[in-house]
Amino acid sequence: MGMQVNTNLAANNSYRNLAATQNDMSKSLEKLSSGLRINRAADDAAGLAISEGLKSQVGGLTVASRNAQDGISVLQTAEGSLGEVQSILQRVRDLAVQAGNDSNNADSRTAIKTEVDALGKELTRIAGSTNFNGTKLLDGSATSLKFQVGANGDLNSQIDVNLSGANVTAIANALTGGSISAAGTSFAIADITALTTGAATFTSTSGGVTTTVVTAALADTADGSAASFQSVEEYASALRSDASFSANFSVSVSKDANGAGNGIVVTALDGGSVGVTSPDGAVGLAAGSASAALTGGVRFDTAANAQASITLIDSQIKSVSTARAELGANQNRFESVVKTLAISKENLTAAGSRIRDTDMAEEMVKFTRSNILTQAGTAMLAQANQSNQGVLQLLR
C-alpha cells in the first residue's frame, strides 16, 4: 500500500464509524430523556400509527367514564325527587281512603281536599324545580336523555335513558284536574233500565292515539238482578268492578239537584278525552261535555268519588314506582359502565405503553455501548490522522 497525503482512508473509515456511533448515542439520549421509544414517525412508523389510535381511545374512555358518572348523578337527582313524589301520593291515597268513609261530613271532606290541593301544588313545584345543570328532569320537557359512555361515534357508545314515565307535572295535573287530566267526560243516562248487563266499549284519545277498552259482560251485583240496572250507582259500580275498565278509567256518578244519579263521569287515567261507542244514546247513554261543572282530578265529595280517586291515585303510584325502577336499573347500568371503562382504559394504556414507551434498562445498555464506541472511535480517529506523519521523514 502506498503512502498518500490527500486521501487518508483509515481516517475516513474511523470518522464514518464515529459518526454512526454518535448518531446512535444521540437517539439513545433522546429516548432515555423522554422515556419514549417513539419520538418521531421515523423511529417506528407503524408503531406510531397504532399508538396514536390507542391514545385516542384512552382519552375518549377517560371522558366517557366522567360522562357515566355524571349520568349516575342525574339519575340520583331524579330518583330522589321521585321518592318524595311517591311519599306525597301515599299521603293523598290515605286521605282518599279516609274520605271514602261516610262518617265525614261536608266540612271534613273539604278539609281533606284542602290538604290534597296543597300536596298537588307541591308536586307541581317539585316538577319545576328538579333539574341538573339547568336541565329539568321531571316536568315532562325532557322525555329522554342521551349519555356518551364510549370512546367511539357508534350507537354502542351511547345510552338513552327514558324519562317519559317520570313526568310529575302530568301526575300533579291528574290529581288536581289540570290540562292533562281535565275534568273527565260526563255521560247522561236518560233511561237506566235500557242499560243491559252486556259489554260496554270506551275509548281514550291522548296525543293523537286512541285506546279502546271493551269490558266483560257487566253484572248487576248490587241487588242480585242480572237482567238490568236499577240505578246509575249500580252501573258505575259494575264498571269499577271490571278489570279492563278500572285499569284505564275511573268513574263517578253525577247527580241532579235532588241528589239522584242522572249520569256518570268517566276520566281516562292517561289524561285523554273519553268517548263511548257501546252502549250508545239509543240505549240511554249519551255523551255530554267535559266542560260540565266538575272539579276533575281526585274528588272526595262522596264516598263513591273517593273510591274512584283511590283507583286514580293507585295508577299514579304505580307509574312512579315503574319510573323509579327504570331509573334505578339505569343507575346500576351506569355503575357497570364505569367499571368496564376502567378495565378497558387500563388494558389499552398497557398496550400503548408496550408500543411507545422506552425500556430504560435495555436503552441504557445501548447508550453505554455507544458511549464506549464513541470514545474508542475518537481515539482511533486521532491515531488514523497521525498515520501519515511518516511521509515527513521522506521530505527531510
Score class of each variant (00 low, 15 high):
Val85Phe: 08
Arg91Gln: 15
Ile38Ala: 10
Ser73Arg: 11
Ile72Gln: 12
Ser65Tyr: 01
Ala49Trp: 03
Leu48Val: 07
Ala64Trp: 05
Ala41Leu: 08
Ile72Tyr: 00
Asn39Lys: 07
Arg93Trp: 00
Ile50Asp: 12
Arg66Cys: 00
Arg93Phe: 02
Asp44Glu: 03
Ala45Ile: 11
Arg66Pro: 00
Ser56Glu: 11
Thr77His: 06
Gln86Glu: 15
Thr77Gln: 12
Ala64Leu: 10
Leu54Lys: 07
Leu61Asn: 14
Gln86Tyr: 09
Gly71Arg: 04
Leu75Val: 10
Ile88Met: 09
Ser73Met: 13
Gln90Cys: 00
Gly80Ala: 08
Ser65Asp: 11
Ala45Phe: 06
Arg66Glu: 15
Arg66His: 11
Asp43Met: 07
Gly47Thr: 04
Ser87Trp: 02
Leu95Lys: 12
Val63Arg: 09
Gly83Phe: 03
Gln76Ser: 14
Ile88Lys: 02
Ala64Pro: 09
Ile50Ser: 15
Val85Tyr: 07
Gly60Asn: 08
Ser81Trp: 01
Gln69Leu: 08
Leu89Asn: 09
Gly53Arg: 14
Arg40Leu: 06
Lys55Arg: 13
Leu75His: 10
Asn67Pro: 09
Gln57Ala: 06
Asp44Asn: 13
Arg91Pro: 03
Gln57Ile: 00
Arg40Ala: 15
Gln86Phe: 10
Glu79Val: 02
Val85Cys: 02
Arg91Glu: 11
Ser87Asp: 15
Val58Pro: 11
Arg91Gly: 06
Ala41Asp: 04
Ser65Lys: 15
Leu89Lys: 07
Ser81Ile: 05
Ala41Trp: 00
Ile38Lys: 04
Asp94Glu: 15
Asp94Cys: 01
Leu61Ile: 12
Gly71Asp: 06
Gln57Gly: 14
Ala49Ile: 09
Gly71Phe: 07
Gly59Val: 10
Asp70Pro: 00
Ala41Tyr: 05
Thr77Ala: 02
Ala45Trp: 00
Ser73Thr: 14
Asp43Ile: 02
Val58Tyr: 10
Ala64Arg: 05
Gly71Gln: 04
Leu82Thr: 02
Ala42Met: 07
Ser73Asn: 14
Ser51Leu: 11
Gly47Ala: 06
Val92Cys: 02
Ser81Gly: 09
Ala42Val: 12
Leu82Gly: 02
Leu75Asp: 03
Ala68Tyr: 07
Asp70Ile: 06
Ser65Thr: 13
Leu82Pro: 01
Asp70Asn: 15
Ile72Val: 15
Ala45Arg: 12
Asp43Lys: 08
Glu84Gln: 14
Val92Asp: 04
Asp94Asn: 11
Arg40Trp: 04
